[in-house]
Structure formats: C-alpha cells, structure tokens
Design a protein around this nucleic acid. Structure first.
Length: 675
RNA sequence: GCUGACGUAGCUCAAUCGGUAGAGCUCCAGUUUUGUAAACUGGAGGUUAGGGGUUCGAGUCCCCUCGUCAGCUCCA
C-alpha cells in the first residue's frame, strides 16, 4: 500500500502501482468521470501516471484553468493527425497550447499551403477521430530500435529534419524521449494529455499564418495553423461570439463610422483626428490635467526636435536608434539651382524625440534645486515620434507619433516608495473612471541593452519591488523586459471583453540624472544626485482612445460624447425653436448639434442613433407651444416631454467624468403629470 | 523587417475566359413640410494605389514600388 496526500491535507491509501485515475475512482465516481489530469507534487501529469508513496496529489477537472491548456495541447495532436491524413506532404514540427487555444507549425514539402478553405475538411476529420475516443497513450523510448520511435519517424514521410533536430536537442540534454499515441498517430511530446480523443469534441480552427522554424527568419518558412478547444459546446460558442463582438467593436471601423479619426497613405502610421475625435482626445487631456493639478504637477512643453548630441548623452542613440526619426537636409546646388543634394549632413544633426525625459532633464538643469521642493513633478502631454517596422502598425494601438501623458518625478531616494504608492492609487482611479477596474501589474527587470551599473539596477529594482510589496499588491515579474535606463512596472487593464491592454508605466531611473549631472542641495547643504521616476498613466493617449472606443463599442458615456445632444426639429418650421434650445444647452456648456437638414424625422433620428449620440431632442408644434423638449435616448427609449431645466438637472451627475447614468424614471412621469 | 492575402468613386462592394468601369450609401439640386431607426426625382463623382511590361486590346496576366489586412518579431 502507498499513501498519497490530498489538497485538503488528508491522506488516502492506495494499492501499490495505483494511478491518478485509480485515485479519482477511489474518491468517487463523479470525480473519476470529470478528472482531466492530475497535479502530482506541483507537476501536471496524465491520469494514467503511477503515484508514488507520499506524493501530494490533486486532480484537475475541467474547471481548473490548467486543464484547459492540457485539453488544447491534446487538440493540437488531433489536428496534426487530421492534417497528416489530408496533406501527405506535411511534416510536423511543434504544436503547443497558447492563451487562446493552440497551434501547430507545419512544414509543407513542395511549398504547398493550407488555407482557411481547408478548415472544414480538417475539422471534419478531427471530429471523426474525436468521436472514436482513442486513448492517449504515453510511451517512454529507450533506444532507436523502439517500435513507437520508428513509427514516429515514419509517420510524415521519414525525412523530417525538424523532428531530428528536436530529438537531438532532447538527447543532448540527457532527457528521455517520450511519445504520445492516439489511434495510428504518434507525436514526440512531454505531455500531459486528456485521457482520450473523446474529450476533443468542441474544437475549431481559427486562422493560419506564416512562422519560421524556431522563430528565426533565416530558417525554413512554416505554416502555422491555429485552433482552439473547449470542454463544452457553450464555452466554444461564447468564445466565438466574443471574437465577433471584438470585430464589431474594432476601433478602426468605429473610428471611420463615427468620424473620429482616419489614416492616409501620405502619412502611414500617423493618425488624423476629425473634429469629433479631437474633441474626445481633448476631453481625455482635460480630465488628466484636472487630476495633475490636484497632485501638484507642473506642466511644461518641450521641443519635438533636439540635437543628436543630446540623444548621445541620454543613451537613446546607443539604445534606441532603430526607433528614432532623424532629420535630413536637402539643399539646392549653389551654381545650378535645378540640382538638389539629398541627405546633406547638418553641422548639428537633429532627431525627433522618441521620449520626453531628456527635455525634462534640460528643464531641471535650468536652475538649482533644493530638497525642499521635492518631490518635483514635471508633466507634459508630450508628442513623441517612434519609427516602427511597417508590419506592426495597427490603428491607434500602434502608431508612429503619439502623445504621452508623461511626467517625471524628481525626488530623494527615500521618497521613491511614497511616490510609487501615490501613483498606483492615482492610476487605478483613472482606469476606474473608464470602467476599467480590472488592473494587473507587471514588474520588468534589466534588459540586455541598457545603461547603468549593476549596482544602480539593483537599487532601482529593489525600490520598485519594495513599493509594490509595501502596498501589498500582487504582481508578476517579467525578467529582462525593462526600459534601457531602468526597471518598470506596467499596468495592464482588462476591458469588458476581458482583453488585456498595457497602459500605464512607472520607471525608476538612477542613470539619467547622473548622465546629465543633475543635482539638488540636500538638508546637509551638500549637492546630491536626485532620483528620477518616469511615469505615464494613459501611456499613449492615442492608444488609450482606441481602447475606450472598443471598451464602449463607440457608445461613449455622456461626459466623453463628442455630441451630447442632437436637436431634431420635425420640420423646418421649427428650426427657430430648435436653434433657441440648442443655444440654451450651449450656454450650459453642453456639446450640441441641431439637424436642420430638410429630411424626415425618422431619417434624422436614425442618423443620430447610428452616431450613438446619447440624447436626441425631437421638437415640433407641441413642444414649442409648451416650451418643452421630447427626449429620446440612443438606446431607443422615448422619455417623453420635459422642460429643458428638468433635463439639465437630471443629467448633471452624468456629465462628470465617471458619472453615473441619469435616471429619468421619476422625471418624465412628473413632467407628464404637470403638463 | 519577414510570410501570406489584398488595393476599383469619399464609404461598402460588383464587373463571366483579357473585350465600352457599375450599384447602394454619402454629397449637390429640385419636389415633399415631414412626429421617433432610411420620402421621391435628377445630378455630380474614376488616369481601377503609383510606375513599367506582355497584348490588336489590361481593373483582369507578369515585374517593381507604396499602402492596407492577418500573423511572426517588437512595443506605449
């Protein structure tokens, strides 16, 4: 007999040689049926794996997030099986589970291809094998003569050099080769897998793209087929629905439909904001400024173009060159005016700023500072330019010029922790205003390309860590992902579709102040080097704008709506009344439009609704006579007639950033009763 | 940057095998004076992304450049 320890600390006695499946059966028939895999001493393994005496065992059911990746990994095997049957020239490489599902990288001899048109027959084949419920069988291989190994080598033609490379690597590390077989299919795999292919009924292939063997552009081009898998049909349908919902909310499409912004071939990767987009952009800035004022920030403005020399001092030239735009001169030939000399070297070559920090450092240098004015918080809505590889541009999410709500805090080392604590609360408040309360924090440490000594990095990293630990906030560590001048914490927020976006960042920097020779006079009367904290909350205002477009699906809350009220006269006889109403609202600081086009009411209402205007006033004879407005919401609810004063007082709270939606349920009846 | 797909009116899309570039929306003009998600009629709008080639003839076939999209890689 052996004893195993269950998650609740209790012990269970089992026969020698019992598997995790046996344990599940011993606990109960329900668990035996729903168990997917097991976690033994922290490692996820197959249900069929043997348990040893004293092992800590927990059984994974479909509710466990780790079970989903086991399922998806198994689905990758199933897909590879189906593809081999349908594409005889296919050679398998690797096929892992990923966040959204799984993929398999496949090499096609003779340069064939797999397209989405092939998905239905691949899926049909997968479905067929899934229904047959073949068990996944693990085999450990001892030597080349092993039958399973021979079968593996032969399964896709027998000349698969990718497999040979993988096997070589594994043997090089002195590890045993393990294989998984289901039906006729065998694949090299560490496992674990679900018990049998019958678990894989709810799979779907999603897309296909190119990839390189081992992510190396100089190696072979592979076809990467993506799919996803779920335990239940409902989960799969929910996922597919969410994909459609994300498509419906695409900020690039909504940006055009709602006349917010556009792009033009003449300036690839640089957004053009239409009046409505500029309105929202400015509202985001206004809101941020109001918060900055309350926290004693001082806003500055610094140049877009600065000398190349400065970027050498800051370290950007050595560490950020590929992302920078440099100025080039063109000059007419002095003798022959028709000749233009291109790329003329300037005496003082200049570059566009990719970051605002050097400008702020120069401002700091402008006078002598005292510790008494610390923490000194210098802010700027700074427009930065960053050269991007052509393939990575994406709407407002990835542009070549963007505005950072940037700031730099200059402080003493012992002020770091309070500054960071303040910032964490500050940023969370901002995200909450947009309904983005689900915030995740990541700490990134020293990257390969960086400036500063190891000691300085240690200090900066422990300062950040200390602040996070002191705040009692959970965070995840990303080794080697920091900025070149210092470690950082990033804020990742989840939108209504549970998608994660990186927004805010806080970076502790001991290097830059040193490089620029910054000083302050301490209480001891001596000169010291200040610490600099780089921080941005929206991150990029352009990107944040894109995020909230998708988060709200274009139906902005009242305070952010570019047009808050659309006044629609039922015919041009009531244009004067409509104009006078709109003037009243304008005087109250609302953003109003009057639709005086000679069209029918229905047409104009439809138009305003499609533009997602929060409130629509329909006015005609009745309203003019009673001096009222007839209010309709963008959801299509008719609130009935009410006075403008009633309307204004009811929406008062909703007009403020983060304000709750107005409740008209009492108002309309009151007004109706009064009239 | 790499791989693949794509680029036709301001927008969304047609155009059979290589044979006269077309529709809806938008816009403009007129009629209608309109009551809660699209009134009617007419008009304007194009070097088919740009350049080169093949052909009697190119939106369509070939090459180059630019851009867009999906990934890869990278990032705010």
């Amino acid at each position: 007999m052996i004893q195993v320890i269950l998650p609740d600390g209790s012990q269970k006695a089992l026969n020698e040689g019992s598997s995790a499946a046996d344990l599940a059966a011993a606990i109960g028939p329900g668990l035996a049926k729903s168990a997917v895999a097991a976690r033994v001493n922290g490692k996820i393994v197959d249900l069929t794996s043997q348990l040893s005496d004293g092992a800590e065992v927990s059984l994974l059911t479909k509710k466990d997030p780790d079970a989903l990746s086991v399922l998806r990994h198994s689905a990758a095997h199933l897909m590879a099986d189906a593809i081999l049957r349908l594409f005889p020239q296919a050679e398998l490489t690797i096929g892992p589970a990923i966040d959204e599902g799984f993929y398999y990288d496949i090499h096609l001899r003779d340069g064939g291809k797999i397209t989405p048109e092939d998905f239905p027959r691949i899926e049909a084949e997968m479905q067929r094998v899934a229904k047959e419920a073949h068990p996944f069988v693990r085999c450990q291989v001892k030597d080349d003569a092993d039958e399973t190994y021979a079968r593996y080598r032969a399964i896709d033609g027998g000349h698969n050099k990718f497999k040979a490379e993988l096997v070589e690597d594994i043997r090089g590390r002195g590890e045993a080769l393990s294989f998984y077989r289901h039906g006729d299919f065998v694949d090299l795999c560490r496992g674990p897998h679900v018990p049998n292919t019958g678990w894989l009924q709810h799979t779907r292939l999603t897309k296909v793209s190119g990839a390189y063997w081992r992510g190396d552009a100089s190696r072979e081009q592979l076809v990467r087929v993506y799919g996803t898998a779920f335990f239940s049909k409902q989960d799969l349908e929910d996922y597919l629905h969410q994909l459609e919902e994300a498509k419906r909310r695409d900020h690039r499409v909504l940006g055009e439909q709602l006349s917010l912004f556009t792009f033009n071939e003449e300036a690839p990767g640089f957004p053009f904001f239409y009046p409505k987009g500029a309105t929202i952009f400015n509202l985001l800035v206004d809101y941020m400024r109001s918060l900055l004022r309350r926290r004693n920030y001082q806003e500055v403005r610094t140049p877009l173009v600065l000398s190349e020399h400065l970027w050498h001092t800051s370290g950007h030239y050595d560490n950020y060159l590929e992302n920078m735009f440099f100025t080039k001169l063109k000059l007419r030939d002095e003798k022959q005016k028709t000749i233009i000399h291109d790329n003329v070297q300037e005496e003082r070559p200049m570059a566009f700023k990719p970051m605002n920090c050097p400008g702020h450092l120069l401002i700091y240098q402008g006078r002598l500072h005292s510790h008494n004015e610390f923490p000194l918080r210098i802010a700027e809505m700074g427009l930065v330019h960053r050269r991007e590889l052509s393939g990575v541009r994406h709407g407002l999410f990835r542009v070549q010029a963007f505005t950072q709500d940037d700031a730099h805090h200059f402080c003493t080392p012992d002020q770091i922790q309070q500054e960071i604590s303040m910032l964490i609360d500050f940023f969370k408040e901002v995200y909450g205003t947009f309904g983005l309360g689900d915030v995740r924090i990541e700490l990134s440490t020293r990257p390969e390309k960086s400036i500063g000594t190891e000691e300085i990095w240690q200090r900066a990293e422990s300062a950040l860590k200390g602040s996070l630990d002191a705040s009692g906030i959970e965070y995840q560590v990303n080794p080697g992902d920091g900025a070149f001048y210092g470690p950082k914490i990033d804020f990742h927020i989840r939108d209504v579709l549970k998608r994660s976006w990186q927004c805010g960042t806080i970076q502790v920097d001991f290097s830059m102040p040193q490089r620029f020779g910054l000083e302050y006079v301490g209480s001891d009367g001596a000169r010291h080097t200040p610490v600099m904290i780089h921080r941005a909350c929206y991150g990029s205002i352009e990107r944040f704008f894109g995020i909230i477009i998708e988060n709200y699906a274009g139906a902005f809350p009242l305070w952010l709506s570019p047009v808050q009220v659309e006044v629609i006269p039922v015919s041009d006889k009531f244009n004067d009344y409509a104009n006078s109403l709109s003037q009243v609202l304008l005087d109250q600081g609302l953003r109003v439009e009057t639709d005086r086009r000679p069209d029918r009411v229905g047409y104009k209402i439809r138009d305003a609704s499609l533009q997602k205007t929060p409130y629509i006033f329909v006015v005609g004879e009745k309203e003019r006579a009673a001096g009222t407005v007839n209010v309709r919401t963008r959801q299509g609810t008719e609130l009935g007639a009410m006075s403008v004063d009633t309307f204004l007082s009811t929406i008062e709270a909703e007009r403020k950033p983060g304000g709750v939606a107005a409740d008209f349920s009492q108002v309309a009846t009151q007004d109706r009763a009064a009239s």
